[in-house]
């Protein structure tokens, strides 16, 4: 390619070609690689939380097993289906963007947005339960062990006083069952719920961002904004949305499906 050829390129270019690029191929791949680089930062972002989860679950397997019974599996399961389906509809939206079918593109975007709201609503009910059960870490945290399970519970040398003091110093309250076993459970269960809220909270935050992005695209399509003739914005939103899906693919078994021993 010579200089002359490079200039020739400039004469019949796509209206979506930005000034810093030479041709659409270069621009498209730049977007894809840029988006992936961004997703790499997201992977590391969530990765640190997954690391914390792994370490604490390794340290307190029984507590995690016990505490996870307070999460509702069917709600998590339904949410998994909802998110997986929304990923499919997002992929279809991208497909119709590539095919330049505006109507279908809007339809599938709308379905995806609907599913995302669906996810958030179910999540909201789950969180509401947690608030009502006082499972939110902090001064109002309460933890009831219905039936002591697992090795640590049986060992149970009931250091009630010291542990209760720890709890009070944190401002939290522990409700002991009749035989009052291992109040450390309560503080460690707080750790479990801290992780639960941190990770699902961050994930839900990403879902909200996703809704905003897809909503913006939807309205741009509706008002026939010239940028929407170009499929790349939808494709980028799709990549982001699939990433959000992947995070949930890991969160679901880790929080809702802890196997008993």
């Amino acid at each position: 390619m010579s200089v002359a050829a490079a200039e020739e390129h400039g004469q019949h270019h796509d209206p979506h070609l930005q000034h810093q690029f030479q041709d659409m191929d270069q621009q498209n791949e730049s977007y894809v690689v840029g988006m992936w680089t961004f997703l790499v930062t997201e992977i590391m972002f969530f990765g640190a939380l997954f690391l914390a989860y792994t370490i604490y679950r390794r340290d307190y397997p029984d507590v995690f097993l016990e505490a996870h019974h307070h999460l509702v599996v069917w709600m998590g399961g339904v949410n998994t289906v909802v998110l997986l389906t929304s990923s499919l509809t997002m992929a279809m939206a991208v497909y119709y963007a590539q095919m330049k079918n505006r109507q279908r593109q809007m339809l599938f975007l709308a379905i995806t947005i609907m599913f995302s709201f669906c996810f958030l609503i179910i999540k909201g009910f789950e969180w509401k339960n947690k608030f009502e059960e006082h499972h939110v870490p902090g001064p109002y945290f309460e933890y009831k062990i219905e039936e002591p399970k697992g090795a640590e519970a049986r060992r149970a040398p009931a250091k009630i006083e010291s542990a209760a003091l720890t709890q009070m110093s944190k401002g939290g309250k522990v409700v002991f069952p009749k035989d009052a076993v291992v109040p450390e459970y309560a503080s460690r269960a707080q750790l479990f719920f801290s992780l639960y809220f941190a990770m699902t909270g961050l994930h839900a935050f990403h879902v909200i961002i996703g809704i905003l992005v897809m909503g913006t695209l939807f309205f741009m399509l509706m008002f026939k904004h010239p940028a929407t003739d170009y499929y790349m914005p939808v494709e980028m939103a799709g990549l982001y949305w699939h990433f959000v899906d992947i995070v949930w693919i890991f969160l679901f078994p880790l929080f809702y499906l802890i196997p008993g021993s």
Partner: peptide, 30 residues
């Protein structure tokens, strides 16, 4: 999801590299 929904399967080598690198670095973190 990565290969099909995110179209990495039909992506360029560069896309493959950047899709992989995050997961590799997770191993370092772990």
């Amino acid at each position: 999801v990565v290969l099909f929904f995110m179209q990495v399967k039909s992506g360029t080598r560069l896309t493959w590299m950047w899709a992989a690198i995050g997961f590799i670095w997770l191993i370092f973190l772990f």
